[in-house]
Simulated scan of single mutants.
Amino acid sequence: MTLVRELVRTYQAFETFAIPDIRHHGFNPAEFDVLVTLGNTPGMTLTELGDSTLLFKTTLTSVVDRLQKKGLVNRVPCQEDKRRTYASLTPEGERIFEAIFPAHIEHLKSRLGKIPPRQRDRLVKAMRELRSHLEV
């Protein structure tokens, strides 16, 4: 349980540090995740978007709906396969992405950037190894 406890505490510490900055930009974490995932892309299917975000697929539709109502995301049916829908940022969504994403990266770097590169590489390797034991 020591490993699980430390994993949870680490994630909670990350959220405590990162989420206020996301909220400062006017988004909740799920909306921010979709916005930055679609940023700098021509768009992607909702399936691809679900696979690329940290969201449960059941949450994705409502998040995309909210961003669409805010005028930040477009939804376009695929002409070749009516079962597929593409999501992309609107020009306003792109403008917001370009304004807030670099600022958020700088916010993260203010703490995570202090970790020496070799130690950061070891941490990434350890987390990937841990994930490999959890994935089916």
Rank of each mutant, 00 (worst) to 15 (best):
I19L: 09
T47E: 12
Y11K: 05
K109M: 15
E92H: 11
V63T: 01
T61K: 03
T61P: 05
P29I: 01
V34F: 03
T45V: 10
L108E: 12
E106A: 14
T2E: 15
K114F: 07
T2R: 13
E135I: 15
V136C: 04
N40D: 15
L55G: 04
D51F: 12
V63R: 02
L67N: 00
R5S: 14
K69T: 09
N74G: 06
T45A: 06
P42M: 13
T10Y: 08
V34Y: 01
E31S: 02
L112H: 01
A30V: 02
D21V: 08
V63F: 01
T85P: 05
H24Q: 13
D33V: 07
F101R: 09
P116T: 09
T90I: 13
T2Y: 11
K125V: 06
V124I: 14
T41K: 08
R95Y: 10
P42V: 11
T2N: 14
N74I: 09
G26K: 03
G39H: 07
D81T: 07
D33R: 03
H107C: 12
V63G: 01
R111S: 13
R84K: 15
T61N: 08
L108Y: 13
T16N: 07
F32H: 04
D121S: 15
P42L: 11
L35R: 00
H133G: 15
